[in-house]
Design a protein around this nucleic acid. Sequence first.
DNA 1: AAAGGGTACAACCGCATCGGA
DNA 2: GTCCGATGCGGTTGTACCCTT
Length: 248
Amino acid sequence: MGRAPCCSKVGLHRGPWTAKEDALLTDFIQSHGEGNWRSLPKRAGLLRCGKSCRLRWMNYLRPDIKRGNINQDEEDLIIRLHSLLGNRWSLIAGRLPGRTDNEIKNYWNSHLIKKLKSQGIEVTLKARLRRSKATQNEHTKNKKDRRKKKKSILAVEEINEVVPRTEIHAPKPTRFKPTIVSSNSTNSSSQGSDQKVEHRTAASEEDKDDFTWYNFSQDQVGMFFDYDFSYEDGLFENVYQEYSQLLS
DNA sequence: AAAGGGTACAACCGCATCGGA
DNA sequence: GTCCGATGCGGTTGTACCCTT
């Protein structure tokens, strides 16, 4: 490859991984867990950069990776999710258990583009969704608040020990301030996937009447709100409608 | 059989984002 | 508020392999 290396790789191996390297990496991660990619190669006895190790593990060595051809259902889902999300491969991969973003990206570029074009379907590439300046500023602004909140949460947890709670995958909030309210108001941590919850899209309690409310089952909330999008992207309606179809 | 072109996919790169100091 | 290291993401490239001529 023509470009300069991203970091100093003097003496480091590049190119295809050998079986021995795979074994070293797998053994190390199985005993020590993922993370600390920068220091991992040294500790695992590998002459690779951390990035390379991470990529090899994520895209190839992870035990939960599904091998084999992408089936028709998966292909349909990729096409629909791509029409909805564009080239956000990691999000698409998140909906296909055992498939990696790299695999889906390659499959899209090598198979699906041609297939769709041959069917006369125009393939439009949606640009990667970046945070706007405004949301970046908001992110910075909220940093202090998050720190404060974290501190207070930790303090409460210390007092209350282990508090059972419902795990809801909320969006990385940009414009939303989601509030999950159980319809069974007696217990917000209730089980049962068919229980309906409300997702409030209001940015604050004051302006909640200006926003639409949607109803989702708990499972739907978990899947749907993994998305990282902002209201100003104008995607919410589209995503909601598309997801309603997918889940129906 | 050999050469050339096409394809698939692993691997690399730069950049964005995040969180902690 | 700013800086910086770590991580994640999507675009791109290299190359082994397959197919066609």
